[in-house]
C-alpha cells in the first residue's frame, strides 16, 4: 500500500453545538478516485470545506503529501496543488471562460515582472487551451460565465480547477444538473485523469451510476460519521448504507 496522498485524521467540526462531522478519517491513495457519499446533510461538503481550508476544524489533522495542512490558509491550496469545485457554483460571473481559466492558472503565471503583467503567458495558454478543448468548452471560450447554461458552468468549475494543475482534485457534485450524455463524458474524463495521468480525485456525488462506475473506493457518511468504506461493490451491499439511504424499515423488509 503506497503512502496516501491525502489523509484526514479524526476530523471533528461543529457549528454552534451541532456536530457536523465527528471523528472522521480517510486515507486517499495517489492516482485513485475516492468517492464520498451519503444523504443530504451528512457532512460531505463540510469535510471538503475543511480540506480546502475554508472551515477551521475543531479537532483532527489533515495531511497532504506528508505535510500537515490543517492550519494553512486557503490561499496556499493552489500552490500546494489542491484544487476544488463547488456544489453551488463559485465562478467569476462577469469574466469569460478563458479569463476564469486564467485566474485558475494564477499560480503558474508568475515569474519576471513582465510575466506578472502579461495577461496571456504563452506557456500557460497552451495548457489552458488543451483543457478547454478537452472539457468541450471551446465554443464558449469568450462567453461570460454567467451566460453559460448550468451544465457548462459546472464544466467550467471543473476546467478551472484543472487549470491549477492540481495533484489532488476535490469535486463537489460535478454531475448535478448534467444530462446523461454529459455525465458519460464526465465519466470518461475523470477516469482518464486518474488512470492515465495519475491525478488523485475525491468526489462528492449523488449520481450513483457515476460513483459506482469511476470510484476505486467509496466512503459513506451519515450524520457526520463514517458508516462504511470499501470498493463500490462492498459498499453497495452494506446493510448500514442501505438503511442510511432508504430507512430501516425498508432495509428490513426489502
Amino acid at each position: 500500500m503506497a503512502n496516501p496522498l491525502l489523509s484526514v485524521e479524526n476530523l471533528t467540526i461543529s457549528f454552534g453545538g451541532i456536530v457536523a462531522v465527528r471523528d472522521f478519517s480517510i486515507a486517499v491513495e495517489p492516482g485513485t478516485i475516492h468517492a464520498l457519499i451519503g444523504p443530504n446533510g451528512a457532512g460531505k461538503s463540510t469535510t471538503f470545506n475543511c480540506i480546502s481550508r475554508l472551515y477551521k476544524p475543531n479537532a483532527g489533522r489533515i495531511i497532504f503529501d506528508g505535510q500537515e495542512i490543517t492550519h494553512l490558509p486557503s490561499s496556499a491550496m493552489a500552490g500546494l496543488g489542491i484544487a476544488r469545485s463547488f456544489q453551488n457554483l463559485e465562478l467569476f460571473n462577469e469574466l469569460t471562460v478563458l479569463e476564469n481559466m486564467l485566474i485558475g492558472a494564477h499560480v503558474h503565471c508568475g515569474g519576471s515582472f513582465g510575466d506578472r503583467l502579461a495577461a496571456h503567458p504563452p506557456a500557460v495558454m497552451r495548457e489552458i487551451d488543451a483543457i478547454i478543448e478537452r472539457t468541450g468548452l471551446a465554443p464558449y471560450r469568450e462567453t461570460k460565465a454567467r451566460n453559460l447554461d448550468f451544465g457548462h458552468q459546472k464544466l467550467l468549475e471543473l476546467a478551472r480547477a484543472l487549470a491549477i494543475k492540481p495533484r489532488l482534485l476535490l469535486l463537489d457534485e460535478p454531475a448535478a444538473g448534467l444530462r446523461n450524455r454529459e455525465i458519460a463524458a464526465l465519466d470518461t474524463l475523470l477516469t482518464d485523469l486518474a488512470r492515465k495521468e495519475g491525478l488523485t480525485i475525491i468526489i462528492v456525488e449523488h449520481v450513483m451510476a457515476l460513483v459506482m462506475s469511476i470510484s476505486d473506493r467509496v466512503t459513506v457518511l451519515n450524520f457526520g460519521t463514517k458508516i462504511a468504506e470499501g470498493t463500490p461493490a462492498e459498499v453497495k451491499g452494506n446493510t448500514a448504507v442501505i438503511e442510511a439511504y432508504l430507512g430501516k424499515e425498508v432495509a428490513l423488509h426489502g
Binding site: 484544487a83 476544488r84 463547488f86 467569476f92 485566474i103 485558475g104 499560480v107 503565471c109 495577461a119 478551472r160
Partner: peptide, 26 residues
C-alpha cells in the same frame, strides 16, 4: 482589461473566496 493584475482585481471583486483558492493574494 489587459493585464494579469487587472484580471485578479476583477476576480477578487466578483468572488473573493474562489480567488483565494486559486492562490490570488487578496
Amino acid at each position: 482589461a489587459y493585464t494579469k493584475v487587472g484580471r485578479s482585481m476583477r476576480a477578487v471583486g466578483m468572488n473573493p473566496k474562489a480567488a483565494r483558492l486559486m492562490g490570488v493574494n487578496i
